[in-house]
Nucleic acid binder design. Structure first.
Lengths: 216, 216
DNA sequence: TTATTATCGATATAAATTTATCGATAATAA
DNA sequence: TTATTATCGATAAATTTATATCGATAATAA
């Protein structure tokens, strides 16, 4: 009866995990077999102790004195922790430029995201495939979502339509929304919303740049 | 000799600013003239005191008892604070789907970002305009950047080319990079890098969803 | 006019996160 | 074998961020 339960991981640690993941995967191609927290910290511009703590939180086997962490094991641990091993079925609503960009990017499967279909209102884009994913007319949302057991809806429609689309997705049984429209969606408690808010990044960039230019 | 200097704003507060901005702008279209911190907190699912503190940090005139904050003034204050009033000239390198999506989105000017041109290596996309922005061949990066006094470079090329492009941009005098490629860029200290890392969002979504599905 | 109320802002407390310290341990070198 | 060193992990201290408390104030109601 051991069931060694780790403490829940902090939000900030979770935020850094994908960076570790990317970093380690790149290393994995190269010669190395293990790596120290200090080295990672140096490359990612983080604090060494922070890295050690972050890794300790997900690592199954821990690090070894004088060697560090085994890269392969760590990658697997992070994958397992972040749920990249679980497959999540998703659809995209809005097959404009951004929607198409996401449809064409095949790297999401790396993270367990499986985009199965798209929807759009524009008659010139529906009823054809983009990167082997069929674009259905909007009316088909409920039918397809139920049929394919879709859990994630990705919203890439213009801001004005986002809430409408969101409501339809929720009614169609999806559990989570990845929202690229610059609006705050209204959803029932049980639905998870992740906003991909470019305005936030832009604001931070803009702010930092302004500060930097002034310093000069 | 007053020069009332406000305390520097915390990172977390800065992160929330764009959300306030979007929210207030939407309100502005409607009847209201002022709004309380409590109401904002309620709508954005934040803590009331947090909102009050955040707004106090940027507000020029403060809120009024029994009324709250003046919406218009607050919008202007946030705009000024985030530097949305300053114009930043930018170019996009990589006119693929994602690059085109960004080129076609006219909403960035709202945030002071002015995308003036694009670059690509693909002969089928260069020498034509996308949403009135000309796509130049890669070689033109230094010339155009200097000519147009570009401060921000947006990278939307495949991961493998990102570092190369980054180096070229830095050599061409840009000050900040908005990086959409899933790689960690190496830049001189003086250059600002903002990573738009979709994998981070996806990881968080994935993780939260996994937790939620387990609970059920 | 006076009381009541909604709201703010300042100060204080609590919680989360980051960073520092230090003893333990496995790899390497002497 | 023994000493040295790089590294970890645990615990502690410091910092940052979030939340609570409470007196002050302007709008409204009595």
């Amino acid at each position: 009866m051991k069931e060694q339960k780790k403490a829940p991981i902090s939000k900030q640690t979770l935020n850094r995990m994908p960076a570790y993941f990317l970093y380690l995967k790149k290393l994995d191609f190269q010669e190395h077999q293990s790596i120290s927290a200090a080295a990672i910290a140096n490359d990612l511009n983080l604090n060494e102790i922070q890295v050690r703590k972050d890794l300790a939180a997900v690592s199954s086997s821990g690090g070894k004195p004088h060697k560090g962490f085994d890269i392969c094991t760590l990658i697997e641990d992070i994958k397992a922790y972040l749920g990249y091993d679980d497959v999540n079925n998703a659809v995209i609503v809005g097959a404009g430029k951004l929607g198409q960009a996401l449809l064409c990017y095949d790297g999401f499967s790396e993270y367990g995201l499986n985009i199965l279909a798209a929807f759009d209102a524009d008659p010139t884009v529906i009823h054809r495939s983009i990167n082997s994913k069929y674009v259905y007319p909007m009316e088909k949302i409920p039918e397809i979502c139920h049929l394919l057991n879709i859990q994630i809806g990705i919203i890439t429609v213009p801001a004005a339509y986002a809430q409408l689309v969101c409501d339809q997705l929720v009614d169609s049984g999806i559990r989570a929304i990845w929202n690229f429209a610059p609006v705050l969606l209204n959803v029932p408690q049980k639905i998870l919303v992740q906003n991909e808010n470019m305005a936030v990044s832009l604001a931070i960039l803009s702010k930092h740049l302004a500060v930097k230019l002034q310093e000069k």
